[in-house]
């Protein structure tokens, strides 16, 4: 898989901003099929930084009803990537 396929988008929320500030950790939505090593390589390739650890959270699908149709909200994976001290990813800081 390509790096740009693995990393879907940055998750920018109050909580993720806190992680950036306090722990130098950056949160992304990633492809469900990717493993931690692939995520690590993809981040290093895309943002030219050194990754020290990757934590992944899998969110289960949730039931969702639209009118009479019963369906699900898609499953997704979030990756919290810890960078080497002093490394930064610009898109989170403006």
């Amino acid at each position: 898989m390509l790096a740009s396929e693995i990393i879907k988008r940055p998750l920018i929320t109050e909580k993720s901003m806190q992680l950036v500030e306090n722990l130098n950790q950056y949160t992304f939505e990633v492809d469900k099929r990717a493993n931690k090593v692939q995520i690590k390589n993809a981040i290093e390739e895309l943002f030219d930084v050194t990754v020290t650890s990757v934590n992944v959270i899998n969110t289960a699908r949730k039931p969702k009803r639209v009118g009479q149709y019963q369906g699900f909200k898609a499953e997704k994976s979030k990756a919290i990537v810890t960078l080497k001290a002093d490394d930064k990813i610009e898109i989170f800081t403006a």
Partner: peptide
């Protein structure tokens, strides 16, 4: 992603 009134300036500017 942010509660109302808790958006940092940088994010707003972006």
């Amino acid at each position: 992603g942010f509660r109302k009134g808790k958006v940092p300036m940088a994010i707003y500017e972006k």
